[in-house]
């Protein structure tokens, strides 16, 4: 299987891992929505490239309003394409989660991710799986995938996952994962039998 760090070699400690979205409160400030509020048009206070780039990213990743002057249909097409691309990347990191949705995967993930900017495909899939598990909607066949990662890694939902030092028992969708010294044993309660997995390398 893929180890959680392999998909994003820079996940640990890079600027993407901070989870911070702090930015100056320029959005919605003076001039927004008025005529002539972008450079090149007389009468509007010039707004910086940084501000306008941030607004565009907000529109694409949090379904915020499309900034004035853009072709809303084309920006919406880009937003959908972006979500489908993310869905494909998450499916590679979380194959059982995607399989659990079958041909509804891209639509289901996109619906959830529409207001969640990406934190990388490992964490995106993890957050989605936890969200589903919390609502009792995690597909049963995705239980072992989540439980194993929960047992093997420590992930606080805001920073890159880290390898656990001590033993752990975690469950998801009726499947338990028991991790001792890096070895994980999967126990499914829905039917008899156990199987063990060697540690990922």
């Amino acid at each position: 299987m893929t180890t959680p760090t392999s998909g994003n070699p820079r996940a640990g400690g890079g600027p993407d891992a901070t989870g911070k979205h702090g930015r100056a409160g320029e959005r919605g400030g003076a001039g927004r929505g008025r005529e002539g509020d972008h450079p090149g048009q007389p009468g509007g206070a010039p707004r910086s490239l940084a501000t306008r780039q941030a607004e565009l990213v907000e529109a694409l990743t949090r379904a915020k309003p499309v900034p004035e002057g853009f072709d809303a249909v084309k920006v919406a097409a880009a937003r959908v394409a972006l979500l489908r691309k993310r869905a494909g990347e998450v499916a590679r990191q979380w194959p059982m989660l995607a399989a659990g949705f079958g041909d509804r995967w891209k639509a289901s993930f996109s619906s959830w991710a529409a207001t969640q900017p990406t934190q990388g495909s490992l964490r995106d899939g993890w957050d989605f799986a936890r969200d589903l598990d919390g609502r009792g909607e995690l597909p049963a066949i995705a239980g072992a995938e989540l439980a194993e990662r929960e047992a093997r890694w420590s992930y606080d939902g805001s920073a890159a996952p880290r390898t656990r030092r001590g033993p752990a028992v975690r469950s998801a969708a009726g499947t338990f994962a028991v991790q001792v010294a890096g070895h994980v044993r999967i126990v499914r309660l829905s039917y008899a039998g156990t199987r063990s997995r060697k540690p990922s390398t």
Binding site: L49, V57, T61, A78, Q119
Partner: peptide
């Protein structure tokens, strides 16, 4: 550009064809 104000776009986004850009 691919991010702004700490938020990842997840894709390559166009920049304006302006002198500022």
């Amino acid at each position: 550009f691919v991010r702004a104000a700490g938020v990842e776009a997840g894709h390559l986004l166009p920049i304006p064809r302006s002198f500022e850009a």
